[in-house]
Amino acid sequence: MSWKKALIPLASVPLIILLAYGFRTDPKAIPSPLVRQPAPGFRMAVYDAGELSLETLKGKPVVLNFWASWCYPACYEEAPLLESTWRKYEAQGLMVVGVDIQDKEANAREFMRRFDFTFPNGPDPGSKISIDYGVYGVPETFFIDRQGRITHKHVGALTPALMEAQVQAILKGN
C-alpha cells in the first residue's frame, strides 16, 4: 500500500484525538464570565432584618452564597461551614450573605434554624439576583474582594480547605 493510500484511514486520527480530548472536559463545568469582573449590585429583603444592598458592603470582602432548603444534600453539607466562617472572620470585616432561591419561606426558615444561621439571608423573588449572577444550580458561592470584584466562583458544596483559601485571598487584598 502506498503512503497516499494510507492517508485514507489516517484521516480519522484527528477525530479520534478530538473525542479523546473530550474525556478531559467536564460538560457540566461552565466557567462564569463574571470572575474578575465587578460583582453585579443587588438589593435584597433580608429575613427579619430589613434590607441589604451590595452597595452598603463596599470595602468589605463578601462571601455570597446561593442556597435552597430543597437542595439536598449539597446545601446541607456546606451550611455549617458558612456559619462557622462567618463567626470566625466577622471581626476581620468579612461578610457572608446568603441568597435563598426558589424556596418556600417556611422551609427556608426551618433550614436557617437548623443550622443556626446568624449571617444575613434573604429570598430572591423572580430569581432576579440568581440570574444576574449567572447561577445555574445550587449551591453556588461567589467570593468578592474589597474592591467589589468577584475573585472566584465555586459550584457545588464548599470544602473547608477551599473556603479557607478563598476567604484568605479576599481578606488580604485591599
Binding site: M1, I8, P9, S12, I16, L19
Partner: peptide, 18 residues
C-alpha cells in the same frame, strides 16, 4: 468505545484503501 470506533475506522477505511 472510542478504541473500538478507532479500530472500525482504521480497519474499514484501510481495507478500502488496500
Amino acid at each position: 468505545f472510542l478504541a473500538f470506533l478507532a479500530l472500525v475506522l482504521f480497519f474499514s477505511f484501510g481495507l478500502v484503501a488496500y
